[in-house]
Structures are given as structure tokens and as C-alpha cells.
Design a protein around this nucleic acid. Sequence first.
DNA 1: AAATCTAGCGAAAACGATGTAGTAAATATA
DNA 2: TATATTTACTACATCGTTTTCGCTAGATTT
Lengths: 340, 340
Amino acid sequence: MSKVNLKDLAKALNISVSTVSKALRDSYEIGDETKKKVIAKAQLMGYSPNPYAGFLRNQKSKTIAIVLPELTNNYFIQAISGAEAIAHENGYHILIYTTNDDKEKERSILNHLLNGRVDGVLMSVSSNTSQYEHINALIQAGIPIVFFDRICHEIETAKITTNDFASGFLATEHLIHSGCKKIAYLSISEHLSIDHKRKQGYLEALNKHDITIDPLFVIQCSTDEKSNIQKIKKLLIGTHKPDGIFASVERLALTTYQVCKTHKIVIPKDLKVISFSNLRTADLLNPSLTTITQPAFEIGNEAAKILFKHLAKRKSIIPNENIVINSQITIRGSTNPKYF
Amino acid sequence: MSKVNLKDLAKALNISVSTVSKALRDSYEIGDETKKKVIAKAQLMGYSPNPYAGFLRNQKSKTIAIVLPELTNNYFIQAISGAEAIAHENGYHILIYTTNDDKEKERSILNHLLNGRVDGVLMSVSSNTSQYEHINALIQAGIPIVFFDRICHEIETAKITTNDFASGFLATEHLIHSGCKKIAYLSISEHLSIDHKRKQGYLEALNKHDITIDPLFVIQCSTDEKSNIQKIKKLLIGTHKPDGIFASVERLALTTYQVCKTHKIVIPKDLKVISFSNLRTADLLNPSLTTITQPAFEIGNEAAKILFKHLAKRKSIIPNENIVINSQITIRGSTNPKYF
DNA sequence: AAATCTAGCGAAAACGATGTAGTAAATATA
DNA sequence: TATATTTACTACATCGTTTTCGCTAGATTT
């Protein structure tokens, strides 16, 4: 409770503050005898250095921020876990900020980080972010940033993603192989590169298998769940309806399941579903959901590693780099070709 | 990029540092003219105060820590979201630490927080924590702590929980009303008060309905998933098996589902399942899972509110208080009495 | 006209740790 | 023996703010 500082320690030992400081940092300038005494006394008095004093002095806070759209998303949580593991190893602390997919909140958060509160940032941009001055400002301020998943091509730095195009291609092809002829794509946002790439994969697969691309089957969803339900319902209930759905994110697959449940659409008989997802319960759903699983933990891990590597070198400029960690497809009941 | 500080501003304006500081903080000592000039210049030069300098001076960091066992748990994520919302409103920042349910890691984390890095702590204790010196040390150091969910009765402070006993009672009674005669309880840890209370509710319900309590039906699970699978498998496959399971936490319900799936045990025909859970997919599982849902967001929200209330008053001692926010039971397919 | 007050500002001391430069004594070198 | 070097330590400036305490005009009171 006493908040012991170096001065207290110095007084108690009858030596100078600098000697105490150096002794504790094991400086060559200090004799072994003194070091031992200081360390013992520090232990005894329960000394623990004031972090902010050091930060002020060194202009380094041993803290990073993770900025992401939302927490209620298994992918992001696993990514945080991955980053946290590395951070803990390196003695870094993690500040969490969520943007709620709101561009303005994202900007406000980054502005708050400009003042040196953190040494670096891990970030997944919000889905409606289309301008990047606030991100550039951060880099200009000497705070390195590493993107993961929802990246910003326009910014030169390290970016960790999964093989979105190939996965999108594979997912779509899997639906085709399962017998689907009319495949819809549920898009999360046209601004996001991951969405764009997944959609490109989808289109490419349709092309390869000579399936005419139907613009009505590309559904622009949003963060508004109610509107998504309406859109998916309209898609699935009308006369012109798909026999397969490729959901770009987990949330949209669940919404699809919900809509199907309330409207008695049977998966996989009436509709096959595949989705990007890190859901633990994918296997336990009714029916079990065929997923493309991103290695979220590894992605968070890798992003943090790269950031810390540069922070250790005091290099605030991270060269442009695209790191891809492949996703894995797990085939389950929702795309079972038997039921048709 | 320039890292403008007060001194730079002062020089540019040809006035003193203190005047600039006071002008920016809207002090009565400074004239309106000067204030305007300073604010304009600050804007122009992109001044943003160094947070650590202020922290050092004020001994307040506007930062709190959330310490919890794990992130891959919907309850905790929702609680964080609830706390984050309030924190953002109050201009507080959130550091996240996970203990992995490891007592030693928990202790190490709290020790790191002793030095004043944070102004306060929100915490859910790890399930094997049975001694509390490290928690007391924090309070002794003047850092207030508020518990939520996995609380520590032994520490005097505010604690936010749900009505665990009543919910445990209700859950068990619901199984009984659904026709169960042999009900097992999956315990997460004997050290946790939430587990204890839920179990008490379970026992009380059995008592009320004159069902003999079978010690073999209280299964001590752990954080080791493999061992849990074994225990649940043993429980469900032997000759002396239950017809109902009450899982104290979501994770154990999912493990039960998994075991049932691999061993062709049909829920709810062979076994009925109810669980505490904040799973978004509860309704989409096969079969849909009857849950007791904790108001996780509200609990996190409330915990943060109480902490900030005391931080604002610079009161580091939070009086003992037990706040209970009720859970809600949602009856779904996994306890359907029709199937027997 | 002298005393008091007040508005508006500046100088300087914190906050706690770090590192540079300096110092005295002890040892090594010539 | 005189000089150079090493050893072990201390004084002090520094990081960027905040805040207390002065100080100086001018305004107001007596």
C-alpha cells in the first residue's frame, strides 16, 4: 500500500537514487555487494517500479492496442487470444478497442492512440472504412500498425490474411460438386478486401463451371441484423431462389440458419450452406455446418510477432508484406449431396 | 509526426508553458483571448497531450484491467463488451488479461498491476484460486477491484452475479418437470462460488421433489477437455446412467452434445440437457439447447459502472455489496418432455 | 493618496525513473 | 613517485504535464 519508490529505497539504504536504480537494472557500474543489498531491500519493502515514469522517460509503453470491429465474433476472439499469448511472452500489455464497425468510432479511437499511449497497433478495419487518413496519421506519428483479416491495401505495412480468394473458390466449387446450380453469395461489405477476394473466388468458380453469374444472387448484407434477415428471407422465399449459399462470414450463415428454421426450409435438402466460420458449435448445429475455418489464433499470433519484432528493433516503419495463412475446409452436413 | 508538446506550443506562441497548459484546461486564470489563441494553435500544430506525463503527475491512468479466465467463452466476451461500452463513455481504457484458469498466472498478472498501471480492476477469478493474498495485495495498494460472475466471497468489495442458486434450482426442477428422475450435475470447479450455488440449487430441487441424491451424479469436471470427455462418456455409457444433465457452464453442455453425438445418444429422448449458456447458436443446435442465459452484457456493464463511480470519487475502498442480476431460462428442444 | 484587490500570466517544483557526466578513492602503469 | 586507469558511486538534467506560488499592472476601495 505504501507505494515505495526509488527515493524511499535510497533513503532506507543511505545511498543515492541513481545507485539504487542502477543496482536494480544490474548495471556494471555497481558493486556486487551493493547490488545484493539493494535487491534484498527492494524485495523487503515491496518495491515495484512506477510504469509511467519509465514510459515517460523512454517514450515506450510496452503496450499495444488491438482495434477491431466487434468482440462477439469467434474469429476475432481467437485472434486476440493468439496475440495475447505472444504479448505476454514479450512483456507487452494489450488495450482492446472495438469500433462497432463504425468508421467514426474507429477514427476517434485511432486519434486517441496518436499521442503515444501505445507502441503499436494490431488492427482489423471496420467494414465501412473507405478513407485512411486516420490510419496514415498513426503511422506518421511513428506508431507501427499491423493489419490482420480486414486489411487496408492502401497502407504500406505488414498484413496477415488467409487465402481468401482460393477459399472462396473452393467453397463455391464444393457447393457445385454437391449439386448446386444456383449459388448465392452473402457479402458482408463491398469495402472490405476480404469480401472482395472471397467474392472473386466465388465468381471464378462459377465461371470455371460455366454457371451464369446472376447479380441477384450477390446479396449485400450489413451489420444490421434485421435488414439481413429480410434480405435473406426475400432471397430464399421468392420464386427465383438459390439452391446453395456461400456466406462470407459466420454471422450471415447463422442468420441463414435462422431464416431457414422459421420458414421450414430444410438444409441441405432445399438449400446447401457453406460459410467462413470459427464456430465451435459448427459440428453440433442442425444440420452440422460445412465451414472454411481460418486459423484465427495463428493469424493473431503472427500479427503480434511481426509487430513485436519491429518494436524490438525500434523500427516504426514496417515494410509492406502480405502474409497468408491458409484456411481449412471442413465438410459437414449442410452441404451433403445425398439430400436432394 | 512531430510529437508536439506544451513547450513547442509555448514557444510558438511566445508565452509560458504553464499558460498553455492552463489555457487548454480552460482555467479561470487565463484570459479568453489567450485561450482562443492557444486552442487554435494547438489544433493547428496537432498537439495531443502525452498521456504518461499526466499519469505520472496525477497518479491516475484512466485505465482499468479486466482479468478473466479465458476469452473463448461467450459469457466473458459479452461481459467485456458491456464493460467496454461504459469505459468508453467515461474515457477509460481497458487492458485485457487472461489467466487461462491458472492460479499462478492469475497471481503474476495481479502482481504486475500492483504498481499503479491501472486505476482499478474488473475480475472473474480463475477456478482453482483458493488463496487470496494476491487479490488483497491489490486492494492494499489502493487499487479497487470489482468481481463479476466468479467472485471471491472472502474479499470485501462489490460483486456482481446472477441468481445462481435460484437458477440452479429452476434448471433442475425444469428437468424434473420434463420427466427426468436421475439428474446429473456437471460441476466446473469446487472452488468457485457460482458452481457451489448452482449445485446447491440442484440439490435443493432434488430434495424438494424427493429424489435421492446420488453422489455419483455430481461430476467434477475441469479445464482439461479430454478428461471431461472421458468423464462424461463414462457417465453416459455405463449401466448406472442419468436421464438428465444440468451443465453448470456452456462448455460442458457442448462436450455433452459431442459425446452424445459420437455415441449415438439421442437428446432429448435418451437424455435431456439444460445448461447455463450465452451461446448465440443455442437455438440452432441439434437439438436446440434449453439454456439459462445470464445477462452478461448487463453484468459487465454494472460492474464497470460501480468501479467508475468509486474511481470518480477517488475512493479506493469499495464497500461490500452483492448485486444480483437475474438470469433467464429459455426452454428449447433438449428438454422436450414429448420424447421419452 | 495609500491600501487592497484582482485578473492574467510566469517560474519552478513536483511526479518517478533513467542515464550522462562528474568525482573521489583505489589500483595499475611508467 | 607521479600519472593514468579503473571502480564504485553521486549529482543532476530529462521525459511532458500539472499545479502551487509569485509577481505585476491596473482597478477598486478607504
